[in-house]
Amino acid sequence: MSGEVRVVVAVVLQTVVVVVAAPFLVGVLRQVRARWEGRVGQGLLQPWRDLVKLARKEPLQANGSTVVAWVAPVVVLGSGLLLAALVPTVTTAGPARLPADLFVVVSVLLVGTVALGLLGLDAGSAFGGMGSSRHLTIAALVEPTVLLAVYALSVPVGSTALGPIVEGRLADPGRVVAPAGVLAVVALAIAVVAETARIPVDNPSTHLELTMVHEAMVLESSGRDLAAVELGSWLRLSVLLALVANLVVPWGVATAGDGPGLPALAVGVVAVVVKTAVSGVLLATAEVFMAKLRLFRVPELLTGSFVLAFLAVTGSYVIG
């Protein structure tokens, strides 16, 4: 196989792995939570079953809603798929014309965010608008943290492309524990929690509409529309979690230098599945022992993460 074909194969494999694994990750999160709360839980397969069930049902569309009702879910799913292809989870290889530039990754993420926000406004219900407003407020406040964390991560490598950042950490593990690197990853982790609507920013399993953020926007969606939105959101969660895991524990990822051959890719798949599952268990455990913040306390959390990210940037200049 020539190099380019191998890169394409690696990227497609990476996307497929993430798509297959994302519902399982959600299953892991729910199962861990259930066990901590003393319940039996639904099993790891339940999100997949839900997805298939939803996809087969007819979507209902409220009178007066527009094409956004079915376009927005597709956009959310498309944004998730693109993230799965771009972000180095299994391999750091990528097409030369399309490097996993973090600024591009963030904007792809934001396209999904906006699509969800518009979906919430489309049907013209009170709760949808509420969720949309909150969702976009949080997204706006997370943005400085994300971009500054990107900046801090890019300083030692001289590039904002994720491939070189992860490979740089692999080549020089000292960077993983360097103060600037740690601060940046912690800030990024908080931003990821906010972007993926987890506790303490949003409660994914809430049934109380007035506290909803993410759930309020998708209340009006049903059938395959809902399936697309859910899968898109799960993809976003899995990719970002895997990214943080790869930044903290870069070992195992198939590097571009391997010209990723099949053995390296196999190792990469196993490594990322293990890493993401472990971080999923940790995330779910942390969530059990935390309460959701009041909406107007969220800015305080995000200001804190921003300060960490800013320290990371300044620290990366002073102490490396």
Partner: peptide, 16 residues
């Protein structure tokens, strides 16, 4: 450059 695999051209920011 600290990355192992980044070529001479690999770190120039490109947007397509």
């Amino acid at each position: 450059v600290g990355g192992a695999a980044a070529g001479a051209d690999g770190l120039v920011p490109v947007l397509d």
